[in-house]
Design a protein around this nucleic acid. Structure first.
Lengths: 190, 190, 190, 190
DNA sequence: AATGAATGAGTATTCATTCAT
DNA sequence: CATGAATGAATACTCATTCAT
């Protein structure tokens, strides 16, 4: 979009970094690994990203965009309950990755949240977006405690991800999401 | 129990490392920082721990011991429900730390779970211990689905911790635990 | 053949390492010394050689190349006896170095042969090459015990080098080689 | 002999060091390894040897004593030729060790001869002793070139050891010694 | 003479970052 | 824009040596 010649290197770098950051963590992933994964010469990385933190920021931005697209997609569901169910269903689809490497949003947020240089707040954006969107859905359902419900729902998802990862068992993710789905549809609404 | 001539350096090293690992993560914590925190000369660390991984292992072992002590303490509660309530109450007490650096058990497990060298399984031990203990409590309550309940309970705790950390809000931890307490006491038992 | 933009650093590093390895041995030579000898910043060594062992391997490879070139050069001699004489004559030319630091091939082989990581077999290659070549010469002379003669000849050279070094006397090398030359020419051939 | 209480620790240290120095070399052998091999507490080593070099010196001294004893033993042989044959026969007996780790005298001399701190000359002593003794034997045989013959004989031994080690073949040592034995008995004497 | 504990100078190695071309 | 080469600050780890007891 912004590239004049659209060589796609920037996109490849962000994509490669996103996957490596999820699988290895920020600290243990080197720029050389990212360059290799994206099939880009090492020195070239710095044309697109001034520092490693800039690249991490770009990965976060890409994830924010993905989350926005995902949420927009859910809007096609007919009811708020269906939308929320679609949301949590995403983690079932990701369950194998989650069991092996944790939730991509949760682990990145956890790792960067311990910092104090701005990246910590940046990393929380995908979580913020999801919480805000889910809050909107609960409000549409007529619930005045929408924010609390949103937090409770996403806490369920993240907790399921943490345990699924700790025990290396994808089915824990599935079970937890099934609980949440039942909880969503059983919520009393005015 | 400990060395006769113990100057307590080993204990100071483990304690310092434990705190730094929680606040900074494993990868970004240097042995120099640990040595400094424990007021021990850098070269001396290797008298007690052959490698950085060994030190991490010692921290995990210390955490396991803490968890055991904590669970043993809960046994003084009169009922299974009271014991489970005491368990989740711990995260309320830790809420400030959790909001700033995440759950000490959850973050360490998450970070090390991506490895493949044995330390990943080691790091999951505190979580395993807690899950097993809670399962026992639910069984005492007469529940046949004790394991599932145990996982659901601890997933709630961990999810609360992740969100509390992402939003930097200790009260999220409190709220989530309150939900879990109510859930515990409202569980139908035979 | 070499890099277009070759600044010759790699060559300088190998050359410097080769000399230091001969004069100091593998274990006591530090990469800092090699970097200094090659007038290269310490960190830069790792751009060319991933590990110290890799650098040692490169030195061995360079020595193998030197040996090949040397043997090829001897082929210009008219007779097998002249070629073998040219071979042992090399150690007379090197006698000052040999008396001070030992035979470059022998000492490296001796030091590395105690290892068990592959470098031991690598280090023996120059010796193997020379033995095979000399065997060929003896065979050309019509000797059926060519291998035994090759080993005997080179054992004479290496023994002379060890004693020349132990007694710090270059003339021992000369004397021993003179003996070998006489032995070569006096060999009965069919 | 010198120990009041003859605890034998010093002897065990020297014996352990001697073996490790032969098998691993001086530079790569640590004092901790020596202490372990001698079943002596690490800190205790310094009661017997002020520095690592002191320990190496003690090993050399012990080897000198061994050589003296060995040579004295050979004096029981009836003729100079029998004595010289007994000498070179030693390396056949050691052939397995030689093929794996080189000649104990030759490798130590080679490694230390590159130094410049006195230890280099010390390490050559066993070689000197042997050369002097063999020279005496050749002189008894009536040879006026006794020194040259002594050097030639021991060069043969050391050369055989170097090649036996490089090719990891004990039989090379045997073959070379058989040659030398034949050479000894075939020497023309007045 | 004994010893577990300690120490610091050194060593290989990594990696984000820079730069000449 | 592109890129191979370069660089230095940092990091884990080793080990001879010292020391309090």
């Amino acid at each position: 979009m912004t590239d004049q010649r659209a060589s796609g290197k920037r996109e490849r770098l962000v994509a490669g970094a996103s996957e490596l950051l999820h699988r290895q963590g920020v600290a243990t992933t080197t720029l050389a690994q990212v360059a290799h994964a994206a099939a880009v010469p090492p020195g070239n990385v710095y044309y697109y990203f001034k520092t490693k933190d800039d690249l991490v920021r770009a990965v976060i931005d890409a994830r924010v965009a993905e989350v926005r697209a995902m949420l927009a997609d859910f809007e096609r569901q007919p009811t708020p309950a269906a939308r929320l169910t679609a949301l949590v269903g995403q983690w079932v689809e990701m369950r194998e990755l989650v069991a092996r490497y944790g939730c991509p949003f949760g682990t990145l947020t956890s790792e960067l949240d311990r910092r104090d240089d701005g990246l910590d707040r940046e990393a929380a954006k995908p979580v913020d977006l999801i919480l805000d969107w889910a809050e909107g859905q609960f409000r549409e359902l007529g619930r005045t405690d929408a924010r609390a419900l949103s937090v409770a729902l996403f806490a369920g998802v993240q907790g399921g991800a943490v345990l699924s990862n700790a025990l290396r068992d994808p089915e824990i993710m599935t079970t937890e999401v099934r609980h949440l789905e039942r909880w969503i549809t059983s919520l009393p609404t005015p």
